[in-house]
């Protein structure tokens, strides 16, 4: 292999630099104590999978990481920015944190290109031509450049989710948050979305994924975090969590999902 080729291949595997540092996160919804002191540190280029039974707080944790939910206490640093500091411009910070939702949430009144270009124009202040060129490049990365002028209603669920991924990565975020990205998809459409996520990982994107796609976790995750009752019960490499879980709760959960 020549040197140029070696350079073209991005370094895979996490570096030592933390991108996300969440410490002592608590979240109350009225009487409900949803997160009970969660610490999560995600390194650059790391792919962290968060699993756990429903109601364990994993989605809430993810939504705290871009302040869609306001933690009751704790601290969150993302790419060196104190997310919970009142002086932080949250709209500016959020450009570095891409998020993909279970229900896609594409804007139905805009084309795929319009969906991706909106924040490029209105948040980053790029001109129409540049925003559209960048949006098209982002759509290219999710293999949907040929659907640029389609409206969400004209796309399949899998295609919509890929446009949603393009909408997030177009802003060149430092970390991507995925909140059950394939849960609303028909089984035959899951593969395309996972393939795009795998490519993102190969390009060195830092990712936090809440999902039930255990095969994907086994194959692609650097680390798996198991949550239950608002706490992180156990974390480690996929081989440990799926092959030799240490905690009883983890064993019970893995046992249940493996039976399917």
């Amino acid at each position: 292999m020549s040197l140029a080729q070696a350079d073209a291949r991005p370094v895979t595997g996490p570096t030592a630099r933390p991108i996300v540092e969440a410490r002592g996160i608590h979240k109350h919804f009225g009487q409900l104590h949803v997160l009970k002191g969660v610490d999560l540190v995600v390194a650059e280029r790391e792919l962290v999978f968060v699993i756990g039974p429903s109601g364990s707080g994993k989605s809430t944790l993810l939504r705290c990481l871009n302040r869609l939910e306001e933690p009751s206490s704790g601290s969150i640093m993302v790419d060196g920015i104190d997310l919970l500091d009142r002086k932080t411009d949250i709209n500016k910070a959020r450009q570095r944190i891409g998020m993909v939702f279970q229900s896609f949430n594409l804007y139905p009144h805009m084309t795929a290109l319009g969906n991706v270009a909106l924040a490029l124009r209105k948040v980053q202040g790029k001109g129409k031509a540049e925003a559209e060129a960048r949006a098209l490049a982002a759509l290219e990365r999710v293999h949907l450049a040929d659907r640029a002028d389609h409206y969400p209603g004209q796309l399949s669920g899998g295609q919509q989710q890929r446009v949603a991924i393009a909408r997030a990565i177009a802003l060149e975020p430092r970390v991507m948050l995925f909140d059950e990205p394939t849960s609303a998809l028909d089984p035959e459409l899951v593969g395309g979305v996972l393939a795009v996520m795998r490519e993102l990982r190969e390009d060195g994107m830092t990712m936090v994924v809440v999902s039930h796609e255990m095969a994907f976790a086994k194959a692609a995750a650097d680390r798996v975090v198991f949550m239950a009752d608002g706490r992180i019960v156990e974390e480690g490499p996929p081989a440990q969590i799926f092959g030799a879980p240490r905690h009883e709760r983890t064993r019970a959960f893995i046992g249940q999902i493996e039976r399917h």
């Binding site: 869609l68 709209n91 959020r94 944190i97 998020m99 939702f101 909106l118 209105k122 949603a164």
Partner: peptide
């Protein structure tokens, strides 16, 4: 849907931009 607000805000659009454009 609430998800429209969340998606727009997650890309850094402000409250008023989200209201106006989305």
């Amino acid at each position: 849907p609430r998800g429209q607000w969340e998606a727009a805000r997650s890309t850094g659009l402000s409250f008023l931009q989200t209201l106006g454009h989305v």
